[in-house]
């Protein structure tokens, strides 16, 4: 087999991979058709991710070479999980040359609510009960973080929200964390399954960047290592 035979089709779908936290997510998307899977990977991203990708593509008759580009969540999130997704993305790139698109996990979490016209905070679990969150808003075809992400406890987030007025809080929060936020006037917390990151959101943001012709440098792509 020559390398030319292994080059990906330029017009094919993109594959989206999100291993930022316990809930894993993948999708393929070509601007019109979408298929996605989301599963409780917990700490087993290494053992589950490629099995899930294989099932997702195989079920729709897609082969790895049909994938034109790969969108991968780069965090913030759990470091090892992020390295699993980015590692698989880099392996694909090495095998087929598919360009890579690194997408912020917080922006993927924010996408479903960003057009609600209210202030929005997106959060992701950062391990050991901590969270990373950012205030975000829509800007053109993308999403902008209006302040740098912050790594802290749910109590620190609650203190910040108490000063924010009306605000939607999205992302993976556990029941104790939601309990902590429930007393804060103005904080709107949508139902759990709507708050969890949907792999389709990651695919959408990746697709927009793919159409804009802005892939990342595959070699340098790495997780966002949010510090304490």
């Amino acid at each position: 087999m020559s390398d030319a035979a292994l080059s990906p089709t330029q017009r094919g779908p993109i594959l989206a991979i999100d291993t930022s936290s316990a809930q894993g997510g993948i999708a393929w998307y070509d601007g019109q058709r979408l298929s996605s899977r989301s599963w409780p990977a917990n700490r087993s991203h290494t053992t589950t991710l490629l099995v899930e990708i294989h099932h997702l593509l195989d079920a729709d008759g897609l082969a790895p070479l049909d994938i034109a580009a790969i969108a991968v969540a780069i965090g913030p999130g759990a470091f090892t999980g992020l390295r699993v997704g980015i590692g698989v993305a880099k392996g694909f790139h090495l095998a087929t040359g598919a360009p890579l698109l690194g997408i912020s996990t917080l922006e993927a979490a924010a996408l479903p609510f960003v057009s609600c016209g209210r202030p929005l905070v997106a959060a992701v679990a950062a391990g050991r009960g901590r969270l990373v969150w950012a205030h975000v808003r829509a800007e053109g075809a993308g999403i902008t973080e209006t302040r740098p992400p912050r790594n802290g406890t749910i109590l620190e987030l609650a203190d910040e929200l108490a000063l924010s007025g009306s605000v939607i809080v999205t992302g993976e929060l556990d029941t104790d964390q939601i309990e902590t936020l429930s007393g804060i006037a103005g904080a709107i917390v949508p139902p759990a399954t709507l708050r969890w990151r949907n792999p389709a959101s990651l695919a959408e943001l990746g697709w927009r960047r793919w159409l804009a012709g802005q892939p990342d440098d595959a070699t340098a792509l790495e997780p966002i290592y949010s510090s304490r």
């Binding site: 070479l65 590692g87 698989v88």
Partner: peptide, 20 residues
């Protein structure tokens, strides 16, 4: 080292899968 092994394992897996 677990965190170090994870990188090679996932890169290798995806390469093997994508190359068949």
């Amino acid at each position: 080292l677990a965190g170090a092994l994870v990188v090679g394992m996932n890169v290798a897996k995806a390469m093997a899968y994508a190359l068949g």
